[in-house]
């Protein structure tokens, strides 16, 4: 009873992890070196930034929004990090705080434009994204800068010599979200996404919930930008290009409905891992990396079809369009 219940409520998440497990198995079997710590470290470094963005995007999508500026926020954070996250430990700490605060402010702006300005999220965040990209170009017109090598090593190598740090980063993202989810703010984000009218009728603060969702999305985007900085030791204003759509793809593969309310951060991380593992898999099978979008698209389509089985059960055709 209990286990079947878990499958019922977490089916999409389990599905995403199942797909990931299969891909990972194939990946390790075709990898010339097989399962080894170094392979896992390289692989998880490639996954972490997208996983962080996927977590941020999930929170926004849970509130029935969407953040098309998540890539630009990440790029802006990355560029700011390339100026500030270096030097003495206290300077580095200050830099990290500023980078995260930047993400929060960008998200806050998105939230305010959507809630107060009553603009559609898709337009508001698209425009905001262009602004954030412009700011990133101002902060760092051409790629470069400097990021603390010590911190970079700590974040991109192995912790205690046994676990890739990037894996801990992804676990940390989940650990950050769960208390929020259990806080009334997180609860109201889900309630608003599930049924805004019901949330309003229940006396919840709808505006605050939405703004909080975007702000949290911005924070995770900034963490993603920071991680990219650890990987490249520099800032690059064009880094976010592919991340916005990939984060949405990860969310969808992870089983979160773009219609809001239902979904899980853990699933989205699986979605991000699936996308990145496809990349690595294609690489080692010997296909050109340029073929990657084709395979990612196929997986995305399968994931979406899985979600659409709901429509087959609908008895009133008109409800399909609602």
């Amino acid at each position: 009873m209990r286990s079947s219940g878990i499958f019922k409520t977490q089916g999409r998440t389990l599905f995403a992890w199942g797909v990931f497990a299969i891909l990972m198995g194939v990946f390790l079997s075709v990898h010339p070196r097989g399962a080894s710590l170094g392979v896992f470290t390289t692989w998880s470094n490639q996954c972490a930034a997208l996983a962080l963005l996927a977590v941020g995007q999930t929170i926004v999508v849970l509130s029935k929004g969407i953040d098309l500026s998540i890539g630009p926020i990440m790029a802006l954070a990355n560029c700011i990090a390339s100026h500030l996250v270096n030097g003495s430990p206290s300077e580095i700490a200050f830099g990290v705080v500023i980078v995260i605060a930047t993400g929060a402010i960008c998200g806050l702006i998105n939230g305010l434009v959507v809630v107060v300005g009553k603009l559609q999220a898709i337009i508001a965040t698209l425009a905001a994204g262009a602004i954030f990209t412009g700011l990133a170009l101002l902060v760092r017109p051409i790629p470069g800068g400097d990021i603390s090598v010590g911190l970079s090593d700590a974040m991109t190598m192995e912790a205690f010599g046994v676990v890739p740090s990037a894996v801990l980063v992804m676990l940390g993202a989940v650990a950050l979200w769960y208390p929020i989810r259990r806080h009334p703010i997180g609860r109201s984000i889900i309630a608003v996404g599930s049924s805004e009218a019901a949330a309003e009728a229940s006396g919840l603060n709808v505006a605050r919930a939405k703004i909080a969702a975007y702000a949290l999305g911005g924070v995770f985007a900034a963490l993603g930008g920071l991680f990219i900085g650890f990987q490249t030791l520099s800032g690059d204003p064009s880094i976010g290009l592919t991340y916005t759509l990939n984060s949405i793809a990860a969310v969808v593969i992870g089983g979160t409905m773009l219609t809001g309310g239902a979904g899980s951060v853990v699933g989205s991380i699986a979605g991000a891992l699936v996308l990145r593992t496809i990349g690595s898999l294609i690489f080692f099978i010997g296909l050109q990396p340029l073929a990657q979008p084709l395979f990612e698209g196929t997986v995305l389509l399968i994931a979406v079809s899985f979600g659409a089985t709901r429509l087959l059960k609908i008895k009133n055709r008109m409800e399909v369009f609602q």
């Binding site: 009334p184 609860r187 889900i190 309630a191 996404g193 599930s194 049924s195 009218a197 019901a198 949330a199 009728a201 229940s202 006396g203 919840l204 309310g261 239902a262």
Partner: peptide
């Protein structure tokens, strides 16, 4: 008349929605 419950939350969370 139009239900004000949040479909994606569980029963307990809905009952306590306003003041958990």
């Amino acid at each position: 008349q139009e239900l004000s419950i949040v479909p994606d939350l569980n029963v307990a969370a809905n009952i306590c929605l306003a003041d958990p």
